[in-house]
Design a protein around this nucleic acid. Structure first.
Length: 266
DNA sequence: ATTGTGGCCTGCCCGC
DNA sequence: TGCGGGCAGGCCACAA
């Protein structure tokens, strides 16, 4: 299998955020919205132009997988990347190829662009159109960011839930930033089954999960993508646990394809 | 309320 | 060689 990137989970969006910092403090001259489907939350091109043209982005924040570009006086712009979205500034992409996206760039996949007074651009490219752009995103719909979540916040996110642990971790309203690949990696590292009822973890298991979640996020940001976890190369038919060699189990958990080690993830 | 399911989107890959 | 059916998963609407 080729060494590709992965879907835009927290590590990818963090690299997009860093790239977006190079687009700050540059005056927006025009907005290109070729795909009305890509505009979310009831905004249209006219509203976006009124909000952004003549203004500048002044900060690039990330909450979970959501990129928020704050403007000088107007409402912030929210960008979601779905599973194949990439960010480009001045023609350069933030990270390498995405696992489930084409390896090339085609301008027809540019779903949204801002052009600056200096001639540069900020472009959202998304072949499968699962991402989107919105104004003034409601951040209260997102749980604590998994890069900085505290142990007690994680405990609160899981407490009392009978949903599968993995499904709860994927719920962006509970914990923001965990996607399918990173969920498998974190649970594998923590030695916890994705099928465990979320509220059934002991205090020790909670500590273990929290430690591995925060460390994994940091680790994968450093490595450069959610596809660079230790489990990922085995996350395919015939794959074996890198820790103990047991054949990995594949099934659907929380509506997502899941791979885990039946020997040490309990 | 919580939890589960299906659909959206479309390029790519596999088998015929 | 072309074709068609699955597949991938973030997010949302909807059902029970």
């Amino acid at each position: 299998m080729a060494t590709l990137g992965s879907v835009p989970e927290l590590p990818e969006v963090e690299s997009y955020r860093r790239l977006a910092e190079s687009a700050l403090f540059r005056t927006v001259r025009s907005i290109v919205t070729p795909d009305a489907w890509f505009l979310k939350g009831g905004v249209d091109g006219k509203v976006l132009r009124r909000a952004l043209i003549g203004h500048r982005f002044v900060s690039a924040r990330r909450i979970g997988k959501l990129l928020v570009l704050e403007t000088d006086g107007g409402p912030p712009l929210g960008i979601r990347f779905g599973m194949t979205g990439t960010l480009m500034v001045d023609g350069a992409a933030a990270v390498g190829e995405l696992r489930y996206a084409p390896r090339r760039h085609d301008p027809k996949w540019d779903r949204w662009s801002a052009r600056f007074d200096d001639g540069g651009t900020l472009v959202v490219s998304d072949p499968r159109r699962l991402g989107g752009v919105l104004l003034d995103p409601d951040l209260s719909l997102l749980g604590p960011d998994s890069a900085t979540i505290t142990g007690s916040q994680l405990a609160a996110a899981l407490r009392g839930s009978r949903a599968p642990l993995k499904a709860r971790l994927l719920d962006q309203a509970r914990v923001a930033g965990v996607g399918n690949l990173m969920a498998d990696e974190v649970l594998w590292r923590a030695g916890l089954s994705p099928l465990r009822p979320a509220g059934s973890l002991s205090a020790n298991e909670l500590r273990r999960l929290h430690r591995n979640l925060v460390r994994t996020v940091e680790d994968l940001i450093d490595r450069g993508g959610s596809h660079l976890g230790d489990l990922m190369v085995e996350r395919q038919p015939g794959g074996r646990c890198p820790r103990d060699g047991a054949p990995l189990t594949r099934s659907t958990v929380g509506g997502r394809t899941s791979w885990w080690c039946p020997r040490h993830q309990v």
